[in-house]
């Protein structure tokens, strides 16, 4: 997929994956763990966005909110209700953590939609870490709160005794697949969308196809706006679901 240059149409060059390259912000040196890169830049922008919305937006503490404060309160209510409804009232202590995940993913996704932006959440490094953090949190919380009863999650009491060991194997596999699907779903969706837009953009070089190409990019962009929010929502709600399993392991 790197450089697909066809013979007769040398102008048609696709580099759909170039937008995901991590490069240093200053100079051209190697990327070590502390190097400020485009990852740093766009994550910093996400942090600034979160602070602008949730801290500066609410600085008036108005009883009758202005627009920014309304959005901040909406985001707060949205995630709070999700935690309360899906994970249960005793999961409210995890609300700041889940809110952090949601706000970061939402801002990273939408900032990634800015043309020429770098989408941090399209990288497995980012989503795998997020998913692993959720997985570890859920597992540790499950054992701390319920002790060995947490293993009841894998031992389906309502099934016939004969089936239980088989179900237990399936449950354990599905439990350990969770972080994989959790992370690949987010990164995969964003990467695919951005890559497809880039491919359409490559077709715009042909004059005959370019109107169609622009139209397709526009449509894809609209879809990506949806995906940006939906994937953040899905990631967050799945975190709540896993948390519910940890707090109430009975089926």
């Amino acid at each position: 997929m790197a450089t697909e240059t066809t013979g007769e149409e040398s102008s048609l060059v696709f580099h759909p994956m170039d937008q995901f390259i991590v490069e240093p912000l200053f100079g051209n040196g190697p990327v070590s763990w502390y190097t400020p890169t485009n990852v740093t830049l766009w994550m910093a922008l996400a942090v600034i966005g979160v602070i602008l919305l949730l801290v500066l937006g609410t600085s008036r503490r108005a009883i009758v909110p202005n627009r920014t404060q309304s959005i901040a309160e909406l985001a707060y209510g949205f995630v709070y209700k999700m935690v309360e409804d899906v994970a249960g009232k005793d999961a409210v202590g995890f609300f700041p953590y889940i809110m952090t995940l949601f706000m970061f993913i939402v801002f990273a996704n939408f900032l990634g939609l800015v043309p020429t932006a770098f989408t941090t959440t399209s990288h497995f490094a980012v989503t795998v870490l997020l998913a692993l953090a959720v997985f570890l949190t859920v597992t540790i919380v499950g054992f701390v709160k319920n002790g060995t009863k947490f293993l009841g999650l894998f031992w389906v009491e309502s099934a016939p005794l004969l089936l239980r060991p088989i179900l237990a194997v399936i449950e354990i596999i599905s439990y350990f697949v969770r972080p994989v699907s959790h992370s690949i779903r987010l990164a995969g969706n964003l990467m695919a969308g951005h890559a497809v837009i880039k491919v359409f953009a490559g077709f715009a070089a042909i004059a005959l196809v370019s109107p169609l190409s622009v139209l397709a990019i526009t449509a894809m962009y609209g879809l990506e706006v949806l995906v940006a929010f939906i994937q953040a929502y899905v990631f967050t709600i799945l975190t709540c679901v896993y948390l519910k399993d940890a707090l109430h392991p009975s089926h």
Partner: peptide, 10 residues
């Protein structure tokens, strides 16, 4: 190669 960088900043 880029993972440590991304993980650190994340």
């Amino acid at each position: 190669d880029w993972w440590p960088n991304q993980i650190f900043w994340l």
